[in-house]
Design a protein around this nucleic acid. Sequence first.
RNA 1: GUGGGCGUAGCUCAACGGUUAGAGCGUCGGGUUGUGGCCCCGAAGGCUGUGGGUUCGAUUCCCAUCGCUCACCCCA
Length: 417
Amino acid sequence: MPIRAVRGFKDVLPDEIELWHRVESIARGVFNAFGLKEIRIPLLEKTEVFARSIGELTDIVEKEMYTFIDRSGDSLTLRPEATAGLVRAVNEHKLFAQSPVLKLFTTGPMFRHERPQKGRLRQFHQINVEVMGTKAPFSDTEVIWMAWDILEKLGLKDLRLEINSLGCPACMPMYRDNLKEYLEGVFQHLCPDCQRRSKINPLRVFDCKNEACRKIMAKAPLNREYLCTECADHMEKVLAFLKTLDIPFVINPYLVRGLDYYVMTTFEIVSPDLGAQSTVAAGGRYDGLLKALGGPDLPGVGMAIGVDRLLLLLEKDKKGPSIDLFIAALGPKAGKEVIPWIKHWRRQGLAVQMSYEEKGLKAQMKQAGRVGACYVLIVGEDELDKKQVVVRDMMTRDQHEVPVDDVISAVERLVSA
RNA sequence: GUGGGCGUAGCUCAACGGUUAGAGCGUCGGGUUGUGGCCCCGAAGGCUGUGGGUUCGAUUCCCAUCGCUCACCCCA
């Protein structure tokens, strides 16, 4: 049995890499337009970074983290998400002292020990955006806008933006208490799952697929009735900006985030083509997070795009590899003669290949075709005797002779044309 | 963690319980002794995931195990 990759960890093979580059380059373009700067942070953090921010009682912290004790006895964790570590970094380097508003992005792998399924890997990749230092509703909208823009530029169809306000520390507890009270009243009528949920994460009961639970929850109190005027006002402005930008949305009063630090605006962008794990991008506001990690009381809003899920939605276009020039050298003498030329062309940045093995011309032509060579240079004993080499255009199948002394510039002219 | 589906060539898949487990694609070679793609011919490539059991005989049926996958849960 050959050694396999770890469960839930996937290789990105050469055939797929072009898609990754496409996603990354479009995202970078958008971030540049929105004035974001990139930050790169470690994959490993002290466990408390996540425990204190995500929430001790969340599934992520309770049963999904890759946590271990290292050789010096510290409890470390492979990051299950980016925001906590990023906020830690911002705090540690006092980046908020440089400018009142920080607009940052980062990309990379996250790790959660879940059962793998479609759109859910144990190592998965996110593109993260964080805007810190402002409570302005427009910053919420801008974060959503970036996610929407990237997905749209990638040509995704049928996306749905769902949005909700969770309320702030002033009004959220009021709603939670009321909901809990309601759930306690109907407790024995709920399914076992919901009985559990009602204690741990009461909002999740709204998501239950059980018919009886749904009926019960249809009469449950809704959070929008409990939003304080500040939160309601904030939400209204965020939505108004979305309308101005022609970004369609639906309000989903049951939308919850799985991380404790979220307040007020929360959103998801879902695709109908993804199966059960349909969220391509999601995010929200986390005003208390910096403070919770021992920093100043600065607000923040952010989002994450699930890159692996996004890639499931993109068409793989199968245009194979392509290089500028393939050199078919026949015989050991030609093989040697050609090396200084290759050195020169590669220095110029041309993509040049030749066969490692001494093979017949037919085999080399075949290889040239496979690697997608635009031109083939045929160099054999005959050519060297005549001081002429043959240049073949693989598209038109035309070929002509070029003097050996002129070959370097002749090829450069052809390729640049 | 729980449940369903599936494990046969590098890939996609065939094979009523019955000879030597096949095909397409890909790879390599030949047809063309120095010219790619199309065509024709040929070759290499398999412990049928693994271990037990039933049977005269198992890729096929049963059990276990491992892996993949989808869903629950949860989330990007």
